[in-house]
Amino acid sequence: MSGRHPLLWTSRSQHPPLHFTFTHSTPTLLETAEQIRDRLVTRFPAAQIVLVPNPGPAAEHSLLLDATHAPDIARFLRDDPVLRLDYCSNVTGVDWPDKDITGITKTSVPDPAGGPPKIVEQKTVRRQPGCLEAVYHLYSMALKHGPVILRLCTANRIDAVTLPSLTPVWRACDFQEREIFDLYGIVFEHHPDLRRLLMWDEFKDHPMRKDYVEPDDYEWEPTAHGAVLERAKAHLTPATTAIKEGPKP
């Protein structure tokens, strides 16, 4: 172990000076999301890249990538001299459960009696399949611009929940992808160490999913109301409800 700890009996002046920077940079992105999409499409013709518009005032549009090409595209974005998105700031999961979309189709049936055609409304329920989504916010520390937002979608929410890990491209995804695996259940392929991050290893479910059902470990509380009261009803006894009135004056 000797030699690892050279005793640096240096004074502060011998330590090379720290320096300061004064730059005020502009946070503009050189390319818009559309331009990046177009460039990616020419570079990766086989890849499916969809521009997902953001209707809100932030107007940061994102790019939905297909899973197979995602690592290559990510590597390209990181090394591309125009973008140089070397910094992956935020990685997060989003759960989109199955959604029933009721559409009403109106068909006009001609009246056999010769009157005006009758309009028949027909309700159609279309089940939009849900998915689990991983969202990556990329910035460039070298060129100081961003963000470029990437999205990856799983095929469904039950069995095909695999996405390629981008940890080999950006180490910053390491803990955050583990967290998504933990809380959403997306399995990241080629992640170096995919374990639960926040919940304990024996935990079964994925608590951040929208359809997660909390275990019925209700703890009695005096102010239960709303959803908690509904849950509490199974546990309440008359004696525990009586205290709401308080001591009689």
Partner: peptide
């Protein structure tokens, strides 16, 4: 109730 959309503020 904010408008529908998304934002990342840092």
């Amino acid at each position: 109730r904010p408008k529908a959309g998304e934002a990342y503020g840092r």
